[in-house]
């Protein structure tokens, strides 16, 4: 009979029991709602073992690829080790800081070299842990595993943000941090190379989008790719030259930097990134949309993008903003 490993303990499934039933029979309480594989309240991830297809049906392809499944309709056919999406069951591993530089006055770039094998995809996120007090924050990955051994993250200084100020002021190249992950599914999916991609980000929400963009270009994505990056001021934008170069080199890629609180200079659009984007792209029908940045912007733009024609299955957002609430993030992606 299949054995479920969850949070370090093992539970044996009886008969046709689902993962949810099995855990509950053993007195483990897990969040559920519809119990019929629809509402996704109970979403889990198989860390090892393969959940049956029915338990993944209806999930976004990127979630399926990352072994997410719905335990309420999962009758396992073999042993499974399962974790909640925000769980810390995955091992923390050491990673060495091999580069630290400023992207602008408020945002630094860190490149981290994992000291153990670490598979990831651009656009996913890792949790960075400060060993002395166990504080954890999530940061999205801007780099491509196929070219960089290192994991690149962009860290905005948050006033009174314990982890971000520590990373900004104290952590030096050569030092080791503990990381955990990767998580999330805000990734490029090479399943439809003709599809239009709309990328909208504010502040260091550019980090995962930069990863998704380069991954798409690397896969030879043929459809149009539009990136709207916004900040209140010109100084709040970053990687502007790199992105302009990419746009020159790829006819199907357009980069539109947006500033909302200053008169826009030549080559920049005036207004908030999401507004400029939704004004210039009239119908989003058939497009895949990525939204990263300030949580309010993401929430609001999800709705607007949907109403402008994007299918719900095609709207991807920086996941850690909504999954684990305040303690895990330094409001990391807040505009600026």
């Amino acid at each position: 009979m299949p054995v479920i490993t969850f949070q370090g303990a093992q539970y044996t499934c009886h008969g046709n029991e689902t993962v949810t039933d099995c855990l509950e029979r053993h007195g483990v309480s897990v969040a559920t709602s519809c119990r019929s594989g629809i509402c996704q309240t109970c979403l889990m991830r198989a860390v090892s073992g393969q959940p049956p297809y029915v338990a993944q049906k209806g999930l976004k392809p990127s979630l399926q690829d990352n072994n997410y499944f719905l335990p309420c309709v999962c009758t396992p056919t073999g042993d499974l080790t399962v974790a909640l999406p925000g769980d810390k069951v995955l091992q923390r591993i050491p990673a060495t800081v091999i580069l630290k530089d400023h992207l602008n006055t408020g945002i630094i770039r860190l490149r981290l070299r994992p000291e153990q094998p670490f598979e990831f995809r651009a656009g996913q996120f890792i949790n960075v842990c400060r060993e002395t007090d166990g504080e954890v924050r999530s940061y999205s990955i801007a780099s491509l595993p196929q070219y960089h051994e290192a994991i690149e993250i962009h860290v905005r200084r948050v006033s009174n943000g314990r982890v971000s100020t520590w990373l900004h002021d104290h952590v030096l190249p050569g030092e080791r941090l503990l990381i955990e992950g990767p998580h999330g599914e805000c990734c490029y999916m090479p399943d439809n190379r003709q599809q239009g991609l709309l990328l909208i980000g504010t502040g260091c929400g550019l980090s995962p989008l930069y990863g998704v963009l380069r991954d798409a270009l690397d896969h030879g994505h043929a459809g149009p790719i539009l990136l709207f990056h916004g900040s209140s001021s010109h100084d709040g934008l970053y990687l502007v030259d790199e992105l302009r170069h990419l746009a020159e080199a790829h006819a199907n890629f357009r980069y539109i930097p947006c500033v909302s609180a200053e008169p826009a200079r030549t080559g920049y659009a005036g207004g908030r990134a999401e507004q400029v984007a939704l004004q210039s792209v009239k119908s989003l029908a058939g497009m895949r949309v990525y939204l990263c940045g300030h949580p309010d912007m993401v929430k609001d733009t999800k709705r607007k993008a949907f109403l402008a024609g994007a299918s719900l299955q095609e709207i991807h957002a920086d996941p850690f903003i909504t999954t684990h609430k305040t303690p895990l993030i330094d409001k990391q992606a807040t505009a600026g």
């Binding site: 519809c34 119990r35 019929s36 629809i38 509402c39 996704q40 309240t41 209806g58 929430k299 999800k302 709705r303 949907f306 719900l312 709207i315 909504t322």
Partner: peptide
């Protein structure tokens, strides 16, 4: 309501409205 969760619930709603398999 959160869009993603809501979409899943809309699906539950429609399944129910169509008399499909549902535990509600």
């Amino acid at each position: 309501v959160d869009m993603d969760k809501q979409a899943a619930k809309q699906k539950a709603f429609l399944t129910l409205a169509f008399g499909g398999p549902s535990n509600y």
